[in-house]
Write a protein that binds this DNA or RNA. Structure first.
Length: 500
RNA sequence: CGCGGGGUAGAGCAGCCCGGAAGCUCGUCAGGCUCAUAACCUGAAGGUCGACCGUUCAAAUCGGUCCCCCGCAACCA
């Protein structure tokens, strides 16, 4: 038994929850459930980033306090997680006392160490956006009223830890995943790292955590937000709990915030004298056509709509099965319907109907006994017996889509096995033999359901309930002969083309 | 010469490290089955493996050159 501490980024409270947020969080939930089922001690942290300029501006616009604005918006995420069946261990908000106090302690600690200094910051400033912009942003021409501005600010000596970071990445091949992302970061680190501006003058932006050593400033949102990974598990407050969970097993995120995590966060940890997380994993983006799904482009697909129509398990399954490890994936309704019908309705759900129909007809709904196995039976059982280990290995390297596919291979194989064995014919001449065939098929289905339960907790629970096998391990032979199948409806009703 | 990833059947991908009959899912077509959710099973069609040159008995795989697409280059799952 080992420990598994996983995090999602804390999402910006001002954002409208979209498929990207849902994907990261479902992935974290699925991995957590896999590990919990494998007997690991798990901690799954997610939450909200509630500071920063956009929150301040939005609150002012609505004529309410920033905190009231955050409190008003937070349920958009909380409700979605509830609807998506997310079982997080804790939900942290950066405006909570437990976070604010510890961030200030951390700032003081880094300051005392001499890793924070004051300097003039000079750069392109967008008057309209009220923030400094990068050279690339200026070049894009998307910003008006751009002028050179000089401002006194506080800086974190990120450059001091550049070499230590490069060494760490090279010494720990799995630290940044997938590999091509690691190469990007190493490429990024070939250039000298500049120090990070970690303050914002209150005169310009006051909705943030005040610097303990300068009351005229609040801290930069990233310095605040990243610390949630340690404040959420008791850093600086509950040392026993903190020692139990830190370092994190994995920080999960989309590729766009990989740099902040692998450079800002790691150097902050170096300065604080804390060990680095074991792994930083960047997944891809969901695209519609060629463009990223995001709020700014106005092409948001609300996962809530899909859940209401097709059920939460179908949405979780689609997102987990369709996105390949570390790559971008395309989202469209047609692909969703295709995936749902072929995998869930035709293969998986239909297999349940096949076996339960036959057991109902020939065995009065009682799960038959299993007699001597034929070579064909053995072919099935061997796959089923090897499957849990295979799935475990794939999940360990975040290949959730491959793990799912391995299970679906068994499901397809069992459908072909039934076709070949034709228990509906055998039953008329040799009932015990038909029973054995059905036992083999049903037990394979049960094991498949257990292995898919982290992805589809709700419907697999229904299957296991029908089989009276809740809580049983995915080990061959745990299906109990003689128990009566519960009656049920189609598990995943086929979506007809008109609906698409 | 900034760094990196990729181009394989109509679509999406695996295979490449370690050369040895081109594979998977979806789609299309034909047949089978009739337990099941118009489902399931079997088979077929469909590929100059981006292009060219080279190494080799043998190249999707190794080497070289070129073309095209994409990512990173300090906002955003």
């Amino acid at each position: 038994m080992s420990k598994f501490y996983i995090t999602t980024p804390i999402y910006y409270v001002n954002d409208k929850p979209h498929i990207g947020h849902a994907y990261t969080t479902i992935l974290a939930d699925v991995l957590t459930r896999f590990h919990r089922r494998a007997g690991d001690e798990v901690f799954f942290l997610t939450g909200l980033d509630e500071h920063g300029q956009k929150v301040q501006q939005a609150a002012q616009k609505r004529g309410m306090s920033e905190q009231a604005h955050c409190d008003d918006l937070a349920p958009r995420f909380l409700d979605l997680w509830k609807k998506l069946g997310i079982e997080y261990s804790d939900f942290i908000r950066t405006t909570q006392d437990r976070h604010v106090k510890v961030v200030q302690d951390a700032l003081q600690k880094v300051y005392d160490k001499g890793d924070i200094y004051a300097d003039e910051y000079e750069g392109w400033y967008s008057v309209a956006e009220e923030r400094f912009i990068t050279e690339a942003e200026k070049e894009s021409g998307a910003f008006r009223d751009v002028k050179m501005l000089k401002e006194r600010n506080w800086f974190f000596r990120m450059s001091k830890y550049q070499q230590a970071l490069i060494d760490h990445i090279n010494a720990h091949p799995g630290f940044i995943q997938p590999d091509h992302r690691k190469n990007e970061i190493l490429g990024f680190l070939k250039k000298p790292l500049a120090d990070l501006c970690i303050s914002r003058p209150k005169a310009r932006m006051s909705w943030g955590i005040e610097l303990p050593f300068d009351k005229e400033y609040v801290t930069y949102v990233w310095f605040d937000a990243l610390l949630n990974y340690v404040t959420g598990i008791g850093y600086g407050a509950d040392e026993e709990k903190f020692k139990m969970w830190w370092p994190a097993t994995v920080h999960l995120m989309a590729k766009d915030i990989l740099t902040t995590h692998s450079v800002y966060w790691t150097t902050m940890l170096f300065s604080l004298g804390l060990p680095l997380p074991e792994r930083i994993f960047a997944h891809g983006w969901w695209l519609i056509g060629e463009t990223k799904m995001s709020k700014s482009l106005g092409n948001v697909v609300n996962p809530l709509d899909l859940i209401d129509q097709y059920g939460v398990d179908a949405v979780r399954y689609f997102l987990m099965r369709e996105m390949v490890l570390g790559q971008d994936a395309n989202f469209n309704l047609e692909a969703f319907v295709k995936r749902y019908n072929s995998d869930l309705a035709n293969d998986f759900g239909n297999l349940l109907n096949r076996v339960s129909g036959l057991i109902g007809k020939y065995f009065d709904k009682n799960i038959p006994g299993c007699e001597t196995l034929s070579a064909d039976d053995e072919a099935v059982t061997q796959i089923a017996k090897a499957l849990p280990e295979k799935v475990k290995e794939l999940v360990a390297c975040f290949a959730v889509h491959d793990a799912i596919e391995e299970v679906m291979k068994l499901v397809r194989f069992v459908n072909a096995y039934l076709e070949k064995q034709a228990p509906w014919k055998v039953a008329k001449a040799d009932l015990p033999r038909a029973g054995t065939i059905l036992y083999v098929a049903t037990e394979s289905l049960r094991i498949s359901a257990v292995l898919l339960s982290p992805v589809m907790p709700s419907r697999t629970d229904t299957i296991l309930d029908i089989l009276s096998a809740k809580g049983a391990e995915p080990v061959w032979g745990k299906l109990i002969s003689g128990v009566t199948l519960k009656s049920h409806d189609a598990l995943f009703p086929r979506i007809e083309q008109e609906a698409a």
